[in-house]
Nucleic acid binder design. Structure first.
Lengths: 197, 197, 197, 197
DNA sequence: CTCTAACCGAGACGGTACGTCCTGTCTTCCA
DNA sequence: TGGAAGACAGGACGTACCGTCTCGGTTAGAG
């Protein structure tokens, strides 16, 4: 469903209309890319998507849920999950790719999600659940390093994953995603030395 | 100036009224403690402080600036700046104290500041300036370790400071400030090993 | 069909389901008695009657038609049509009984019908048709008085009927149905003197 | 302040802006004349008047109050208050003039007011107060007839005024304002005979 | 005895309007 | 001139209904 379509969609009956669902997500993404978080309102999304506000509220209980959906939709270009064979390569690759991944609109959406979570309790829960899932997944990178015998067995993979992503968060939240090759190197160096045998 | 005062303050003439300034900050802090970021609006602060909205806008160009003022005001209980004599002690102490420092309302204010910065460009600048200043200050902790010969000379103090505080930010932003002694230990361990000779 | 029934009614095939019809009218009446015109919506009636909205729209093209049905249903306790033998007795009896008849929920329904007719053209037609029929019927009261030789032959029965019921309408629409015995006497007196030989 | 002005009005400070007040009333009247009660929403008035909704709600607590203001504003062409020297002339003139007065948009506004009063309690109070005041004022017409010795002393002036205006209400509410000269004559005749000595 | 047409409940849909809250600007009046 | 006060245009919020539509299922009656 193109958002440039000026003909209103009709209901398809008592079942959820996938066209509406798609149009709303597309409109949300477009508005975000054009106007950022400041211009991102349910009202504006509804207008752009030619959808009724209640239709949005029916399926996304809060702005944060809609943002989260937009974010996961943007992840079609996959999240970094490197496996270079060395811990140092994995960490550097993870940070570099995540920074690149966030450098487009994706980062803005994620930032807004974090911001939204500070005001809205529901958003906080959704973000926390997502964040935990990601941290656990990324911990696999460190588990592989342990299996290779490269990483200390007594170093906590979850803590390492958490720490590494924390640094990415801070770069994102303080608008320092651009030109960070050198500082990523330095942080990678600290992390690697902190984790290897 | 008590906020329970029912007599309106009058202008004291062609000079800034320090009573108004204090009343506004006090009201802002109170509202934040009672209702959090969600209830924190210029309107509400003005109402509580018995001040006119233009008076607030005159002295604080944005909500973020007011938040920042509230935050620095809360820092009368000083920020952590440990000097235990060992790198491990310093790092553990820094994280522990920062977590404790943020556990009250202070953390909420700082979170909101970070959130606000994602939507408001002015807030972003203010936060970034503050954050850089803090990171540089905390880097001194690592410089002392280098001076003691405990830390590698080729490890970047700013990067270390940035990484450490990034972890604290993430704990704050994902509501995990409570009961983090064990995970702080694990992260401290990684950092220390990553930095020592 | 009780509205407390928790089992949904199914279609009975290619014919109108009288159970649904009855349930909708019952629900409409209940809602009106409980919440008045303000709470009276097609949505609410459908919910209460466990009916689909299209079922209601199929049989009652507008809210006014439903209201009119509810009203005529409430008229099982018959409308006043006195025949006391004297014009004065008839008029006083008509007004008194109509006021009493309207004093329950019936009056509220009729008021709402009049109100609805001001916004909705279809409602206006339905009300006008009903009103004309009633006025003509009541005119019979005056025709009987003429036949008795009590009323002037040149006084218009329809006009008299219209004027008398107009007064009842105004009492209804200005919430003055209660305790109107004295003012009804005064009006009756004017009307009688205006009509007798 | 012309409503065709496309430049937004600015606030004139801490005092009520008479331009806004006038623009809102003008817009309300225009919308009513164009679209009738059905299209008359606070939203539409605000849009047309280039006013914020809160500005309207600040000064008119309900739609009915706004309607009442529009109505009284339309009364610049004065309400009928005949003094022809005879009771019959006064009554006929009152009804005829009121019907003519209501034949434009004014009648529509008053109808809507009556309708609104059936749903909204506040509207009901406002209408009742207005209606009582009008009835009392019109009763003066009958008092003059009594003073002339034309009308029975024991006929109640208020009841007469109430009855007469009730008939006008019914004509209004049943859309029978046009071409009512003959029926007005008949009703006038009944009323006159009912009131004279 | 099958097929079809109309009915039923349910509920999603695009919309409109509601009444409230807040934003940032502006003006008036007081000290 | 600074400050309290508060009106202003504007816009987003989340909710309630509107009237329309489709769905899946049911049954009566037409062929």
């Amino acid at each position: 469903m193109s958002t440039t379509d000026t003909q209103p969609r009709r209901s398809i009956g008592a079942a959820r209309n996938p066209d509406s669902h798609a149009a709303i997500l597309a409109a949300a993404e477009e508005i975000f890319c054009e106007s950022g978080y400041a211009g991102f309102s349910i009202e504006a999304v509804a207008r752009r998507a030619r959808a009724g506000k209640p239709t949005i509220y029916r399926w996304w209980p809060s702005k944060a849920h809609l943002l989260l959906d937009v974010y996961t939709r943007l992840k079609s270009s996959r999240m970094p999950d490197p496996d270079t064979g060395t811990l140092e390569g994995d960490i550097r690759s993870f940070l570099t790719e995540l920074v690149r991944f966030w450098s487009g609109n994706t980062g803005g959406v994620y930032k807004s999600l974090i911001a939204e979570a500070q005001a809205d309790h529901k958003a906080a829960e959704a973000l926390q659940a997502y964040s935990i899932e990601r941290t656990q997944h990324t911990a696999g990178m460190f588990e592989r390093a342990k299996a290779r015998g490269e990483m200390r067995a007594d170093a906590d993979s979850l803590a390492a994953s958490d720490l590494m992503s924390a640094y990415a968060w801070k770069l994102l939240l303080t608008d320092r995603l651009a030109d960070q090759a050198d500082i990523i190197d330095k942080v990678t160096s600290i992390l690697v030395r902190g984790l290897v045998k």
